[in-house]
């Protein structure tokens, strides 16, 4: 049976790993990316996501040297994102060993880029980051820092048949708050999007993960704060998800590479 995936999301500010709250621009420093990748690999996480969250703001490219060091620690799939604007950028990330690339700002500006990218690299390595912001009017919008007001669900309806392999759905309001996932949002999106969905934003307690996996049919969850700021490990999350009857991959054997 296909297992539910637990995916640590490492967010990077150009110097080290950081963790935001509500996507605010004053994140906490939480450590070194390469060391974190090594720990996650040893803990047999199902996948890893590494995002340079200010790359598009600062108009910079992914630090390929650092990304290569991260990938070298990993024997599971790794997705890289941040500042991707061109086919050449995607090529550079796949060439150093990324399995997927995460597109966001570029496709808000120009959704047709999804088609261009998939034509060259295949849809399975194209992941779309959807950052959903619930505003005071009660509606969800696509969070961005390029001053575009785009209603979330109509955007998803528009791109749902585009050739991408997966989405990472993040609740901006719940990001870093560790107070639970936005379940109504997830339910709405899983009706529209038919590729796998990684849900993130809000997981702070094991109960939150149980709630997510018992009330929706999504198969993957991304998390960061719970690993940075609590004693819970990816394995604890998997056991919690298994307790509500969803399959997970528990690795009993510990593989320690020799070199």
């Amino acid at each position: 049976m296909l297992k539910s995936r637990i995916i640590p999301i490492m967010t990077f500010n150009g110097f080290g790993l950081v963790k935001t709250k509500g996507f605010a621009k004053n994140p906490r420093m939480v450590g070194n990316a390469v060391q974190a990748a090594k720990v996650y690999n040893n803990r047999n996480v199902d996948e890893l996501v590494f995002l340079d969250i200010y790359a598009s703001d600062k108009n910079r490219k992914m630090n390929l040297q650092l990304a290569r060091l991260i990938i070298n620690e990993c024997f599971m799939p790794v997705a890289l994102g941040g500042g991707i604007k061109t086919i050449e950028d995607i090529h550079d990330l796949l060439a150093i060993g990324a399995d997927k690339v995460v597109l966001k700002t570029k496709i808000i500006d120009n959704p047709e880029f999804i088609k261009e990218a998939a034509e060259v690299f295949g849809n399975q390595c194209i992941t779309i980051a959807i950052d959903a912001e619930k505003r005071d009017d009660g509606n969800y919008y696509l969070y961005n820092r390029i001053d575009k007001k785009i209603e979330l669900y109509s955007f998803l309806e528009k791109i749902k048949s585009y050739p991408f392999g997966e989405i990472i759905l993040t609740s901006v309001n719940n990001d870093g708050m560790m107070n639970g996932f936005d379940i109504p949002l997830v339910k709405e999106v899983e009706e529209i999007i038919k590729v796998p969905i990684v849900v993130s934003g809000g997981g702070g307690e094991l109960e939150h993960f149980k709630e997510l996996f018992s009330t929706t049919s999504i198969e993957a969850v991304g998390a960061a704060s719970i690993f940075h700021f609590t004693r819970y490990t990816p394995r604890d999350l998997k056991l919690a998800i298994a307790s509500v009857g969803r399959p997970v991959r528990i690795v009993e054997k510990q593989y320690i590479p020799e070199n």
Partner: peptide, 10 residues
Amino acid sequence: LRVPHLGWNT
């Protein structure tokens, strides 16, 4: 079922 078939499977 969601396609692609993506993730860890037995």
